[in-house]
Amino acid sequence: MSGDMSIRNLKLKNTSAVSETIGYVIIFGIMMSGIALVTLFGYPALLNQQQEANIRNMERNMIVLQSDVNALVYKSVPYKETTMQVSGGVLSVESPHDDKSLSIQVDGADVLNIPATANRFQFGSLSFKSDQGLPIISLFNGAVVKRDIGGSVMLSEPRWFFDDPTKTLVITLIQIDSPPNLVKSGICTIQMEIEPLAIDIAGTNTIIENYAPGVKTVYINYRDVQSDYFRAFENYFESKPYMEKEGADWKINNVQKLVIKAYKITVLGL
């Protein structure tokens, strides 16, 4: 724009009510109210968003850890290490405890033989606790579960299965433990080591019970005193067509071969 049509050549007809001070005050007022709005509403919303992003990030991290655990358990890898950024909470190892345990019964007798814990398998978990206390995201028995206000949800399922043609039920029990109690935030290097966990009289980690040609009913009792992941596991069992609820137990009918394997994953460091 140049020449006669440019703004500097336009003549304003009447400028007697135009005040530079009022203009300045208006512009300044708009600016200040903008800053105030951002400080009052924008900043808390941003912080909230960040915390949510942290939790989402951690859900993803836990699924990465789950595939590490799967590599240890199902692919005979002896040791795994993963580095990740933990923010908005802390990562900790919960030692195995009777509060979260499982028993498996056939014909009213325990299949598992763990005398130290009254034949109940104790899980233990690797958990992320958010700064606000909830949600808690856990790697628990090979599953990723999330505990929030009012209940829990399973983000990724454990690899238990029932093979219909051979009527084989395969249960993998994964215990997570650490020598000292580990808690950490920030950049964590999760070092995991696997060893078989004795669950039968002979002291081996694999139980293969063959009932052929007959079939039996297997009862699974899952105990969660704090009800942390109870809902998640109830929903998981319920979603499986071969599982049926009976009282406090879950039963699986028509099992011809029962396979139970148990492993202990030791978290050496975070």
């Binding site: 690899r159 043609p165 051979t166 394997k261």
Partner: peptide, 18 residues
């Protein structure tokens, strides 16, 4: 950790790992 079932005669192979 896979259920394998081999039926001789018919030579049917069944594999399932969950």
């Amino acid at each position: 950790n896979a259920v394998v079932n081999i039926t001789p005669g018919m030579w049917r192979v069944h594999y399932f790992n969950g």
